[in-house]
Design a protein around this nucleic acid. Structure first.
Lengths: 342, 342
DNA sequence: GTGAAAGCGCTAACAC
DNA sequence: GTGTTAGCGCTTTCAC
């Protein structure tokens, strides 16, 4: 029922290898024949059989480059990618990992230029948000290599899609959780980073939107910027809690969660103050288990990694694009009772 | 590097087709040759290449039977199975669906006996908990067909594994949520079914355990059994709420959630009473959106369906068994802000 | 510019 | 009981 390249060849009165050339836009076919074959392909909506492709590919695999940033999230993302790879490696697929420093735009640019010279079937990247990076990504896409962004995005580029969390919505979820456990009353402090890269601003804005819309009796009374630095995070939190005795909740959009908690515990306020954070790194898991953190919101990093390779594979092997340019992973809510079941 | 059946054949000094026969335990091989070949297979830890198998299988697919119960959950489960099927169908796989009535043990038994006569590569089933069903499943397993249970389980059978939610843990999560939003104080009513099949008892017990261990100032003051019947659910809830004015929270382990909510609304108590339920069927989603239900806990039915076919496929095609006999799907927490992002 | 042929790893029907 | 053969759908090399 489903057409094969052989059938297409018969219909067009040419050889299968000619059909193959047309399919892959390779040269060595006259314009006339190419048009004839292409027409039949289109009419039948022919989709090459992936298993057949795979078998022929196995000893000559396609290369997919993975360019990640050296941040806490990297391990879980990698484990997701590697799980997907286990499923797909038999199709004739090879991964090449590259890791760049978060703060070093030049380094990522260098990696991208290196990759541009190679024959890549696809690229998965956590981009630094920067015009030069966008340009470099675009030139890779223009050369015919599909690009998927993961965890961080450059929406103004030609990347095929972004795979990650909607930080604004996640902030909204945090806002509602805070509203519920405070029973719509009390004063809240926000600890945030000010760096845009990790979506902390969106997390803050989503939170603020829900509080102001739906929890009118909760006030956001302090906003502390940490610039992702450990010691200042501790010091500023401590100073804030010392200067006022009326904080009922703390919302942390950024890293150094344990520094915030350290300040809270030093003042013996862990019972009095409700804390909501992001991510599920080991130290955060411990803080949730011990009851210091009430809720933490997960990004489902494993799923981000897993999906990114699956989506890219679908494009490369089956020529299928995702329905949306934004493949959003679930907003997971964790508290003591489910954080270990992860 | 990885051995092929051809290499095995060479080493054993026989033909590939002979190796194939040994691999599949088919007859037509002398004991002596069989032992020799088997030894090499074992020594090399030979794993047949799934792509090669798939290509040869495509026109002679393996059949996997799916036997589900006709309950609300069925659509989402099916959609998960069908997503997995899209990924795997090229490997030479065919699904056969069967749907049985929940209350009709005889019907499921009949279906199972029918299936026992067919040549099946595997079976996915939501079993009714019954000794006769266990026997029927065991005889299918004994005949060499791996069986996976989904959503409901018969742990005392020979099924390979169960895929679903841990209902006790889910109940614990509900308990902690209730504790948090009531601020560890107040009176709670439990609405439950009394039917064991859906794990409602475990949901109740998990909830009770957390409340009594960790929220000492919350009292469970009413337990209502609904037997999964709509009108009685409404009537009993209404009577209970009429008879006392001090209920702060309602925990629903079973179905007919909208009947419970109808009673609450009739008495204009939707602001005063916190409600926690299970599942994400359309009417429940609406109730969460409109703020009547504070939290609902999802079973991730789609994942149950998806995983069940993947796990069975891995066993059938790659001879890989899951790490554990219990493949537990996540306990999803939904509230207004994330219920539509599902 | 086009076609022929071999091969990827496995299966199955059939001949010996 | 064992080996031969053909074939699954696609890719690639090479000869014409």
């Amino acid at each position: 029922m489903k057409a094969t390249s052989k059938q297409i060849a018969e219909m067009a009165g040419v050889h299968r290898s000619t059909v193959d050339k047309v399919l892959h836009g390779r040269e060595g076919v006259s314009d006339e024949v190419r048009a004839r074959v292409q027409k039949i392909i289109d009419e039948l909506d022919y989709q090459p059989n992936p298993i057949g492709k795979a078998l022929a590919r196995q000893n000559n695999p396609l290369i997919i480059a993975v360019l990640l940033l050296d941040v806490d999230a990297i391990d879980e993302i990698k484990s997701g990618i590697s799980d997907a790879y286990e499923e797909l490696k038999n199709f004739g697929l090879k991964l090449e990992y590259y890791v760049n420093n978060l703060d070093n735009r030049t380094e990522q640019l260098y990696s991208l230029r290196l990759l541009a010279k190679k024959k890549l079937a696809g690229l998965i990247i956590s981009p630094i948000r920067d015009p030069e990076i966008v340009k470099a990504i675009n030139s890779i896409v223009d050369a015919g290599t599909p690009v998927v962004t993961i965890n961080t995005d450059v929406p103004d580029s030609k990347r095929m899609c972004f795979i990650g969390q909607d930080a604004f919505s996640a902030g909204r979820v945090a806002g509602q959780l805070m509203g519920e456990i405070l029973g719509n009353r009390g004063k809240v402090a926000i600890i945030t980073s000010s760096a845009e890269l990790l979506g902390t601003l969106e997390r803050q804005q989503g939170f603020e939107a829900v509080i102001s819309d739906q929890f009118s009796r909760i006030q956001i009374v302090e906003i502390i910027e940490t610039h992702e630095q450990a010691l200042p995070t501790f010091q500023k939190t401590l100073a804030m809690l010392n200067s006022r005795d009326d904080i009922d909740g703390i919302y942390i959009t950024c890293g150094n969660v344990s520094e915030v908690c350290r300040a809270v515990r030093l003042l013996n306020k862990e019972q009095a103050i409700k804390i909501i954070s992001f991510d599920t790194y080991p130290e955060i898991v411990e803080l949730v288990k011990s009851g210091i953190i009430n809720f933490t919101i997960g990004q489902n990093l494993h799923a981000q990694g897993y999906r990114s390779l699956k989506v890219l594979f679908d494009r490369v092997f089956n020529n299928k694009e995702p329905d949306s340019a934004f493949v959003l992973t679930k907003i997971d809510i964790f508290l003591r009772e489910n954080i270990s079941l992860n």
